[in-house]
Design a protein around this nucleic acid. Structure first.
Length: 411
RNA sequence: GCGUCUGUAGCUCAGUUGGUUAGAGCGCUGGAUUGUGGCUCCGGAGGUCGCAGGUUCGAAUCCUGUUAGACGCC
């Protein structure tokens, strides 16, 4: 199979972190220098951040969602794929819709619990008859109560949809378990995810053959297993060794609801088993401490809604620690969001007082302005963090960099 | 001058035939937010019910007076 997709490692091994690396992912829409944070544009655009803004803040990747774009997949395909259709002409990822198995199913209407006090507590799960996503071995039935629309998503349909959308990198359709699911349930869900991965890989090979006129789209196999290390190791062995007609996955997605406490051991367990020469994407995490753990254990790319969502809610990232811009103490504060920031918002001189007023205004146009200025700021903060981590890995001063960052940020 | 209507939280208002510590939305204020059903979610402060009397076991609610505003009529 012809692939215009590859991964190269550009750093020397670090004895303190044997799995850590900096690299380059070569895709049909350009190179991704890793570690990198992918901006999340679920519906094909990042909320309140334009493609021009993305270039300005040195974003490298947009990650969209095959489930949310399902109805528009044919149009996107006809337009020439996600990059052209969205106006963002750089590298793109699509997620499979696997996250929605949980977020619209057992976790519907709840903030994703990452607290171990909820572990194994099935009473914390949404009742099946209240869920908008019902899972079985065949796939997932998504229901929309407003339109009465029902979509039966299967691994085959997810992959076919993602091929239509045409992102450079796709994710296999997986079942994400909730922290409240039991060990036994995780065993069953993991086996289901393994079978779905195989079915998806088979469909991927079929679709690739059907679309020879298009650039090759890479497919990452996704690893699950809850917070159980034995299941995580099994997932890593199963997915990394999986082949269909001699073809395997191009990279790996590290998925699941992962607590800060368990993150290092879970990531280490998986990445020690995964082959070193393929890229790994850590799904859904972007807080700086999580990124540090991720890169130290071998993750290359990250994505998360937190920087943009938290920006819209007034949670601002800054080198000396995050803060809530809505607090009254910033009402007359003429300082920048972060005096050391190179984002367009801080470079333009917007003050905390000014941005707070926009954010708290009753005018929807002011909101939009604030959301744009604050989202680009937070996004740039995490992107810059990844850029600096990459440079530190390559130039051999990672420990010093991390120490200085953490000392200020988590003071 | 007379008549009618209206005065309840910073704002807009609910308050059932009088019945425990008078509610809501917005605003204010604090927190949450991790592969985006989110201008979302959770919490807190804030009122001697225009004022003064009266009836009653008990009044935001009924009666009288008074005051402020709106409207109408001479």
């Amino acid at each position: 199979m012809q692939r215009d997709f590859s991964f190269e490692i550009v750093s020397q091994p670090n004895p303190n972190y044997p799995l850590m690396r900096a690299g380059i992912i070569h895709t049909p829409h350009g190179d991704i220098k890793t570690p990198n944070f992918n901006l999340v544009g679920t519906h094909g655009h990042v909320k309140f951040i334009s493609p021009d803004d993305m270039w300005t803040i040195h974003a490298q990747v947009m990650l969209s969602n095959g489930y949310h774009l399902f109805r528009r997949a044919t149009v996107i395909s006809a337009t020439g794929g996600l990059a052209k259709w969205s106006g963002w002409n750089g590298p793109t990822f699509t997620d499979s819709g696997g996250f929605q198995v949980m977020s619209l199913g057992s976790g519907l209407g709840k903030v994703v619990s990452m607290d171990m006090v909820d572990a194994n507590d099935e009473s914390k799960l949404r009742e099946p008859d209240e869920r908008m996503a019902l899972v079985d071995d065949e796939g997932v039935e998504f229901r929309d109560p407003y339109s009465a629309r029902i979509i039966k998503f299967t691994p085959e349909l997810s992959i076919e949809t993602q091929h239509k959308i045409g992102a450079d990198i796709m994710m296999s359709f997986d079942e994400l378990t909730n922290i409240s699911d039991t060990y036994d349930y995780n065993v069953r869900a993991l086996e289901r995810t393994r079978r779905w991965a195989e079915r998806g890989l088979r469909e991927h090979i079929r679709q690739t053959a059907l679309r020879k006129d298009r650039p090759y789209q890479a497919l990452y196999g996704v690893l699950q297993g809850g917070y159980y290390l034995d299941l995580r190791a099994k997932a890593a062995r199963d997915i990394s060794s999986m082949t269909v007609d001699g073809e395997g996955f191009d990279g790996f997605g590290l998925g699941g609801v992962l607590t800060k406490q368990d993150l290092p051991s879970i990531l280490t367990t998986m990445c020690e088993i995964l082959p070193n020469d393929k890229p790994r994407h850590l799904l859904g995490l972007s807080h700086p401490d999580d990124i540090f753990v991720g890169v130290e254990t071998g993750s290359d790319t990250f994505d998360c809604v937190a920087p943009t969502r938290e920006a819209r809610h007034g949670r601002i990232y800054a080198m000396d620690g995050n803060f809530n811009l809505k607090r009254s103490e910033y009402k007359d504060d003429d300082n920048l969001l972060d005096k050391d920031c190179d984002c367009p918002t801080c470079q333009a001189g917007h003050t905390k007082a000014e941005l707070r007023a926009l954010l708290k205004s009753s005018d929807i146009a002011d909101h939009a302005k604030a959301y744009n200025l604050l989202s680009t700021h937070n996004a740039r903060f995490i992107i810059r963090l990844c850029e600096q981590i990459r440079q530190a890995i390559i130039d051999g001063y990672y420990d010093e960099y991390k120490q200085s960052f953490v000392k200020r940020y988590y003071r």
